[in-house]
Design a protein around this nucleic acid. Structure first.
Length: 189
DNA sequence: CACCAGATCCTCT
DNA sequence: GAGGATCTGGTGG
């Protein structure tokens, strides 16, 4: 997958629902201490820029969520209990929507991911948003970085071998409000 | 400063 | 499917 084009800002500068669906099957690429880790995204959730009581923008801008107000394509990394979760900002600025990356399948760097996760079972390696960050060595220090630049150590790329995708929608996980919205998307397998 | 809610995970049942 | 572990930021006194 070397040479696969990086997803540009315009990809993310759209409705988060569209971005959440189209991110399925794409690659997330992490350079960690000279090692290259790659995963194929299999599950996402959309959080809307307004009117979404489950979104972190719902009560306005704070120090915690200020990255949501950057330009599209930036990372919003926040802590949830003991864990970190990562979103990609969509649209941004006055439309602080985002897409949560909930799961991926390992493509490259499996050994390193196993080491980071302390988990040998590939099924359980990266099937949750907290696990995604651990498996890729993503911490709060990456909050606010621009993921549309391959100069950085975390970005997203096209997948040239993307098969026909069948996408399932369902309720988002772990939230207490707006459970009726069908904004969780995953690849049928 | 105390309190509390929260986009989780893991271990059971 | 439920319950507990455990941590950080936001809010209010």
């Amino acid at each position: 997958m070397d040479g696969t084009p990086i997803l540009p800002r315009a990809f993310f500068d759209r409705d988060p629902v569209v971005v959440a669906k189209e991110l399925l099957g794409k690659y997330i690429v992490r350079n960690l201490d000279g090692k290259r880790l790659v995963g194929k995204i299999t599950e996402t959730e959309a959080y809307l820029p307004s009117g979404d009581s489950a979104a972190h923008n719902f009560k306005g801008k704070t120090k915690r969520n200020e990255s949501l107000y950057k330009e599209a394509g930036h990372a919003y990394v926040h802590s949830m209990r003991q864990y970190c979760l990562i979103d990609v900002v969509t649209e941004g600025s006055d439309k602080p929507g985002s897409v949560l990356i909930r799961a991926f399948e390992p493509v490259e760097g499996l050994k390193e991911m196993i080491k980071l996760r302390q988990e040998e079972d590939v099924e359980k390696l990266s099937n949750g948003p907290g696990k995604v960050c651990i498996a890729l060595g993503i911490t709060r220090s990456l909050d606010g970085i621009d993921m549309t630049s391959s100069e950085n150590d975390l970005f997203l790329t096209e997948n040239p071998d993307l098969p026909l995708r069948e996408i399932a929608a369902s309720s988002r996980i772990g939230i207490s409000t707006a459970k009726e919205m069908q904004l969780r998307f995953n690849l049928n397998s």
